[in-house]
């Protein structure tokens, strides 16, 4: 049978920065083809197809419904595979090769990670799973 795609509403204007992305206007309705955990979703809007940031979309059915996984306060060990310098006050700066605990995997691709006493958002695409944390 036909594949039914999820429809999402655009919540803010988005200007594309590469040819594989598509621009969006607030209020547009898009159909989602693929949800990549790095926060880029492949969608179609009328005859256009391309990647858009998941953070600019809300589900058409039940915008109040939380789609994100629950936080895991124990943390899941990950290693940074690329450095990132925080640009917002709720982000965390990390060098390449640092081990962190991922405590909340958000669909927008900006996961909440903990490093020592510091907690902040970090791009999931710069993280690699390092296996289950040893509790002992």
């Amino acid at each position: 049978g036909p594949i039914i795609l999820d429809t999402y509403r655009v919540i803010a204007d988005f200007e594309k920065t590469s040819k594989h992305e598509i621009g969006l206007h607030s209020g547009d309705l898009v159909e989602i083809v693929e949800k990549n955990p790095n926060g880029w979703w492949f969608c179609q809007l009328e005859s256009k197809r391309g990647w858009v940031p998941a953070s600019y979309l809300e589900p058409l059915d039940g915008p109040e419904e939380a789609e994100d996984a629950d936080p895991d306060y124990e943390g899941e060990l990950h290693v940074t595979i690329q450095a990132y310098k925080a640009e917002q006050e709720d982000e965390i700066s990390l060098e390449l090769g640092e081990t962190v605990e991922v405590i909340h995997k958000l669909l927008d691709g900006w996961w909440v990670v903990r490093k020592g006493d510091e907690t902040g958002h970090f791009p999931s695409m710069f993280l690699q799973n390092a296996g289950k944390k040893d509790k002992y």
């Binding site: 880029w40 492949f42 709720d90 691709g109």
Partner: peptide, 22 residues
Amino acid sequence: SIKNPPQNPPPRPPAEMRKKIG
């Protein structure tokens, strides 16, 4: 076919939509 997603982090949500930590 679907091309690979962009290799740069997606933009953060608009300020008023950001989830608070905690």
